[in-house]
Design a protein around this nucleic acid. Structure first.
Length: 403
RNA sequence: GGUGGGAUGCCCGAGCGGACAAAGGGAGCAGACUGUAAAUCUGCCGGCACAGCCUUCGGAGGUUCGAAUCCUCCUCCCACCA
């Protein structure tokens, strides 16, 4: 029942070529490894690309082996890094791991799924094990790697620990007998180290499969939490939809291909329509937004998200649900202070600037003054910019938090 | 171990005794324009009840009327030599 086509769909590199068919033909379910270092709590749409690939394997009866890199997270993957990562504490890592696994489960099937923490074996290594591991690779091999080479040439520090990272990740493959390891295209080098290492430990070397990296909402850089250009798989529908709408048009094709489950010919149809002008880019992006929201929430949420979006950005109304904030007794009210207290701006200075720039509105009316009479505020909605809203209530009318 | 160079705001980076809350760029935020696009233009971009004051230029001291700039010690980074 193997559908190799589907497994290969949307991949970037699969090595060695042709071996996948052979391994599947052997009839045993493959152990498909995917490593995740819990260095941040959110699972992004970029991650969802490779997760969905893993799911395709699951759907065909192969075992997803998810490695939670609780040990390696504390070392730090040097991939695509221009500087040494900050080390995380064990507690932080554990917290992130739990949160991230929730996100992963939104995409993966519950079965067949094996979740392993790599501290299980890496934490056990003795010094002589580590030395043996190190003896299996050379400095020249390490420096082959682009990230290291750039940093080395630019006179930037590279810690010895960072050299260990790929080896540790490779040990994971040895420990769990991976048949194939998945990853984003920036992981190719690391994955190959794992393959190499398995051979040196007399195991059958794993195959490697990479999927393209998804650009972030800026359309330029890889989607990542540290860059703040990400869409989380557990983002609220409205948020998710809004973020999709904000990607540059040029990134749409990539998003259609990598983040939706639409059939390829349909995607091709949309893209061709964009090309010849028969499809309006705004409509195409809306559809993309609906597809993605529907995938992680449901179709109803998708329509609602689109409606909420129109309400705020097209009709420029306040959203249906607005956080509430209690006014205190001052009269007149000094607005910069209020905006800060309500969390709409981060300082009173910023509040003053926002007012000066015409970004502050009361029920849609621009506010020019820093001081406003209390009765003019009570019960109305203050807005900063296009997307920050708070409804003002007289003190006492706000239900206590948590109800 | 020796010698030399370096650490500046979210990031990069200029400044090298007063005119410095610190050039310039990027990111970000806001306004205009739009399809909340993108591009573009404009403004903002440490804090403070704000024509003033307070805290920032790796850390701690010192010199000076005055220090991001000079001196001392410390921490960290880089290069070259060994």
């Amino acid at each position: 029942m193997a559908d190799i086509e589907r497994l290969l769909m949307g991949t970037e590199t699969v090595l060695p070529e042709g071996e996948l068919a052979e391994r599947i033909a052997e009839g045993k379910p493959l152990r498909v490894k995917l490593g995740m270092d819990p260095t941040a709590p959110q699972v992004t749409l970029g991650w969802a690309v490779v997760l969905r690939k893993l799911r395709h394997f699951q759907e065909q009866g192969h075992t997803a082996v998810l490695i939670v890199g609780d040990f390696t997270a504390q070392v730090g993957d040097p991939s695509q890094r221009s500087e040494t990562r900050q080390r995380l504490s064990a507690a932080e890592v554990r917290g992130y791991a739990e949160k991230a696994l929730d996100g992963f489960r939104r995409v993966l099937l519950p079965d067949p799924l094996e979740i392993r923490y790599n501290s299980e074996w890496l934490g056990e290594l003795s010094m002589s094990d580590v030395l043996e591991l190190m003896s299996k690779s050379t400095l020249a091999q390490m420096l082959e790697r682009d990230d290291f080479q750039k940093r080395y040439r630019a006179n930037e520090p590279i810690s010895m620990m960072e050299f260990m990272y790929p080896l540790l990740q490779g040990m994971d493959s040895v420990a769990i007998d991976a048949d194939i390891e998945l990853g984003g295209s920036d992981q190719l080098w690391n994955l190959l180290v794992g393959r190499d290492l398995m051979g040196k430990f007399d195991k059958r070397p794993q195959m490697v499969m990479t999927v393209p990296l998804l650009v972030g909402t800026d359309g330029v850089h890889k989607m990542s939490q540290s860059l703040g250009n990400y869409i989380g798989v557990d983002d609220e529908p409205a948020e998710m939809f809004g973020k999709i709408m904000s990607i540059p048009d040029e990134a749409m094709g990539e998003y259609y291909r990598l983040t939706t489950e639409l059939p390829l010919d349909e995607v091709a149809g949309v893209l061709a329509g964009l090309e010849d002008g028969s499809v309006h880019p705004g409509d195409a992006k809306r559809r993309l937004g609906r597809e993605v929201v529907a995938l992680f929430h449901d179709a109803g949420a998708a329509t609602d998200a689109e409606a909420a979006f129109d309400r705020i950005f097209k009709d420029k109304d306040a959203p249906e649900e607005v956080a509430e904030f209690a006014l205190d007794d001052d009269d007149p009210v000094w607005l910069p202070g209020l905006l800060k207290d309500a969390g709409l701006v981060s300082s009173t200075s910023e509040g003053k600037r926002m007012i000066a720039q015409g970004a502050v509105k009361l029920d849609g009316e621009r506010v020019e003054e820093e001081r406003v009479a209390r009765p003019d505020l009570s019960g109305r909605v203050v807005q900063v910019g296009k997307r920050r809203f708070v409804k003002l209530l007289p003190a006492g009318d706000v239900p206590p938090p948590g109800t």
